[in-house]
């Protein structure tokens, strides 16, 4: 459920959602409808949706892992892309480090992976990825380029 949407002006947006897959879906729709993401090229907008979905799903599945909790998302316009900050009060990443996000081995004759793609996609598609654990919060930030390069 969406608690609060503050659209201060065209270059800034804040959104708070509950930690569950349905709230992620409706939150994504809100974020994608923002002026900043709407002005992106089609491909870059698709990239933004992939990244935001993976980041938010990861928090639901691993940080809160089924518990209730809030996810705070901020978008801010920067000259070369949309700067995104995501905060939650779920568990920290192991050793307080982001996963390496290596692409799982794809061998069609072996047992194909059904997961483990999320951090690979995030790391491939964003710039300036940072993570910090302070005061019981996970702070993730990254930049979504306005132009599609992949």
């Amino acid at each position: 459920m969406i608690h609060n949407i503050d659209s201060f002006y065209r270059g800034l947006m804040q959104l708070v959602i509950e930690s569950d897959p349905t709230a992620v879906r409706s939150g994504l729709a809100q974020l994608l409808a923002s002026d900043m993401i709407q002005t992106m090229q089609d491909g870059a907008r698709g990239t933004a949706e992939i990244v935001l979905a993976e980041v938010l799903n990861n928090i639901v599945e691993h940080a809160y892992a089924g518990d209730n909790g809030a996810i705070l998302i901020g978008l801010a316009h920067h000259p070369d892309g949309v700067h995104v900050t995501v905060r939650d009060q779920g568990r920290p990443f192991p050793r307080e480090k982001l996963p390496q996000g290596h692409l799982p081995e794809i061998d069609q004759f072996a047992n194909l992976p059904e997961g483990g793609f999320g951090w690979y996609l995030i790391r491939t598609l964003v710039r300036d990825l940072t993570y910090l654990r302070t005061d019981g919060f996970n702070h993730l930030s990254f930049c979504l380029p306005y132009e599609d390069s992949l």
């Binding site: 698709g46 992939i50 692409l103 794809i106 069609q108 194909l112 690979y120 996609l121 992949l150």
Partner: peptide
């Protein structure tokens, strides 16, 4: 569709 194709391409599942 384009975004779905991108997910398959980036994860190399388009080779499977």
């Amino acid at each position: 569709t384009p975004t779905v194709a991108k997910v398959f391409r980036l994860t190399r599942m388009d080779t499977v």
